[in-house]
Simulated scan of single mutants.
Amino acid sequence: MIKTSYVSKTIAELKPSGIRRFFDLAANLEGVVSLGVGEPDFVTSWAVREAAINSLEEGYTSYTANAGLFELRSEISWYMEKQFHVSYRPDDQIIVTVGASQALDIALRTILNPGEEVIVVEPCFVAYAPLVTMAGGIPVTVQTSKEEDFKLTPQQLEAAITPKTKAVLICSPNNPTGTQLGQEELVMLADIVKKHDLLVISDEIYAELAYDEEFTSFAAVDGMLERTIVINGFSKGFAMTGWRLGFVCAPKEISEAMLKLHQYAMMCAPTVAQHAALEALKNGMQDVEEMRRSYRRRRNYIVKSFNEMGLDCHNPGGAFYAFPSIERTGMTSMEFAEKLLTEELVAVVPGDVFGESGEGHIRCSYASSMEQLQEALRRMERFMKNHCQ
């Protein structure tokens, strides 16, 4: 018998992912239509897969440089300049990581001293607060509201800052709400960040999935390049979730410090995946555009359907999630999701797993085929009629 005292107190006190717990329930049921998994339903394009196969046939099976293939970092540098108008040097400001999750981890562990605070904007990806905690920091959550379309206001940011605040962790377009911050909104937040001499960790993994206005990187805001750590990767926009490849761009001083962590913890990202990503950046943007158009059609359909059935839903500007309110049912988010699953075999994610401000909502991914979306929405409409007469 292993003693519980052998486990770190920090890890022992972490809550398991609410998303995984819920989908363990769904996995045991037949005929479930899932709107839960945050993963593209597209297969990685053939050209990208072929590049990976060719790299194996040519014998590229050794480690790369710790920071990643220089050719890939150069391509990322060009991509960031062309797509988002921010300039990073491939030799000392870009690190290729094992997914965006590892990029987040090393960014937080690099900048935080024990007890320093990171402002985390909720609702948010379930890993943010735990990653801050595991890095020795203290997550300070700021709860956004549906009345503000789940956008962080300058007043909220200012009120959350203390002498211990080190950084703000923000995601736009957002998981789970799909909310995208526009350039003017970022400028107002940046003024406060600069006033208090803070860092920003900007999770931009959904940057390619912006539908109604051009995406603006936080690093592109005047005066923010030198105080922003940009997290990005290939999972969402390029449909490469299983390849586990991300990247982080940061000022030289921070990037070189992150590289030390990366060297000891990971050595380098998978070589095959790096060759695949190189092809994706060089020749895959047409595939990205086709996926974006498809997601936009699905978004329009699912949001319209939710509002018509009485589930008030704001129009998400990006990512592939809708975040409708279920408050009129009188159920909690967990009750709604569990009843919907057992009665109609539709899997969605309870909003409260993304933070307290997510209560009263559910997250529904529209990264599913139109046929699946139509079937799920038929079942949900029937569910609403049964419970909201």
Rank of each mutant, 00 (worst) to 15 (best):
P251S: 01
H275F: 15
E290V: 10
R244E: 11
F218R: 00
L281K: 13
A277K: 04
E289D: 13
D212S: 12
F215L: 12
V272K: 03
G237C: 14
Y264A: 12
T271L: 03
G223P: 03
T271R: 00
E253C: 03
H262C: 10
M258H: 05
G237P: 09
F234R: 13
M266Q: 09
G246E: 09
A219W: 01
T271K: 00
A265H: 12
G237H: 08
K260V: 14
G284K: 11
R227I: 10
T228V: 02
K252V: 06
I254M: 07
G233Y: 10
A257R: 15
F234E: 10
W243D: 09
Q274E: 01
P251Y: 03
A257S: 12
L259A: 08
N232S: 15
Q286H: 14
L261V: 02
E253A: 09
L225M: 13
V272I: 11
A273T: 13
F215P: 07
A257N: 13
T216N: 04
D287L: 07
W243S: 08
L281S: 14
T216Q: 01
T216K: 06
K252C: 04
D212G: 12
L259V: 12
V288D: 12
R244G: 03
G246D: 11
L259I: 11
F218N: 00
F238M: 11
L261D: 06
R244T: 12
Q286M: 11
R244W: 13
V248F: 00
C268Y: 01
P251E: 02
V272L: 11
N283A: 06
E279M: 14
A265W: 13
L245C: 03
P270K: 01
H262P: 05
N283K: 12
K282A: 15
M240C: 05
V230F: 06
P251G: 00
A220Q: 08
W243P: 01
D212P: 07
G246I: 00
